[in-house]
Design a protein around this nucleic acid. Structure first.
Ligand SMILES: [Zn+2]
Ligand SMILES: [Zn+2]
Ligand SMILES: [Zn+2]
Ligand SMILES: [Zn+2]
Lengths: 175, 175
DNA sequence: AACTGTTATGTTATAATATAACAGTTGGAG
DNA sequence: CTCCAACTGTTATATTATAACATAACAGTT
């Protein structure tokens, strides 16, 4: 059902990432890159401590085992550049898959499967317009929009059995 | 600017609450009622531990000082009945202000002021339709929709000064 | 090279949010 | 009355995130 070439997807995202970082005058350092790669590894949302566990299993050259602040700093950096998004309803993170014409932020609609954790990301177009218009109606100035849909993806609906593989990110994600 | 009669608003919400609880065959016990009243006290989003602090300052008759599970149990109950909502992007909670025709859940759009913490709640109508339609397009079955707008309310835009009163819920909310 | 400002990272500890687990209590249904 | 289910109390712990301070790496300047 999925005509998704993930190798190509990763390559494209990494190119974009370097480009965006340079444009913003920032550096995509090895650690930041590692976090981005972990999130790019598949299209699931991954928790900060799952990322930490992965990094600790494969520490970078000449580096000690990373600690929580290392992960959160990298996440903050990547969030600011719009390279990743946070799933607020699950305290987890996923790599942005939307084409970024300039390096502008966009309003993301995330469809998160409660069973397998996969995230399907769409750009909010008309949907966001309505929110901005509604906010204008009572003088509210929007800085940031969060739109998340929790539910069941097509694959998990087909497989009746609950796989229980959800949130098993620490062991399921390889880098 | 705000033609809001809050006493009336609270009364109405409490009536609805009792009605909805009875219809669902559940009980609005004193503790649950206390949590609801704390959230009804104003239209700000309040954190679980702020609620806890308030409850500990004014414990109910014949009750010891409540502990975290007490608060989270009450919040879970009220969430299930749709009487309150959680602000996922801030780990806080606010009382639902939308008229509830039956006791059906609704999709809430929350406009949260980053400065004063006030929440303006709207019911998502057309906006949610678009999401459900979009989800249908790739076979995703939606259980729950989260729509949050973070920004600045009209009042806080007028007052240039940052009041810094945001999140000062433990001391600011009286019951 | 030595100095300096800036960004990035390391390290330790702790804050903030949320739940597990089990014991006790209560209030109706039968 | 007895039993069951719902509710509550209690202790401990899990999970998520940040504060605070020290050090390193780097770039430009003299
Ligand atoms: Zn995106
Ligand atoms: Zn799935
Ligand atoms: Zn509501
Ligand atoms: Zn405000």
């Amino acid at each position: 059902m999925d005509s998704h070439n993930h190798n190509q997807c990763i390559t494209k995202c990494l190119q974009d990432a370097h480009h965006i970082a340079v444009q913003a005058g920032k550096k995509l350092t090895p650690q930041r890159l590692q976090v981005l790669q972990i999130l790019l590894n598949d299209h699931r949302a991954v928790g900060a401590y799952d990322i930490l566990a992965i990094m600790q299993r494969k520490p970078l050259e000449d580096r000690t085992k990373p600690q929580p602040p290392t992960v959160y700093r990298a996440l903050e950096f990547l969030l600011e550049l719009g390279l990743i998004h946070k799933v607020e309803s699950q305290n987890s993170y996923y790599a942005c898959t939307i084409d970024k014409p300039e390096n502008r932020q966009h309003v993301a609609q995330a469809f998160i499967c409660n069973l397998c954790g996969i995230v399907e990301e769409k750009a909010a177009l008309a949907g966001a317009q309505g929110l901005y218009k509604k906010a204008d109606g009572f003088g509210f100035k929007i800085d940031r929009v969060i739109m998340e849909c929790r539910g069941t993806c097509a694959v998990c609906q087909t497989e009746q059995r609950q796989t229980g593989q959800r949130a098993n990110t620490a062991t399921g994600v390889n880098i």
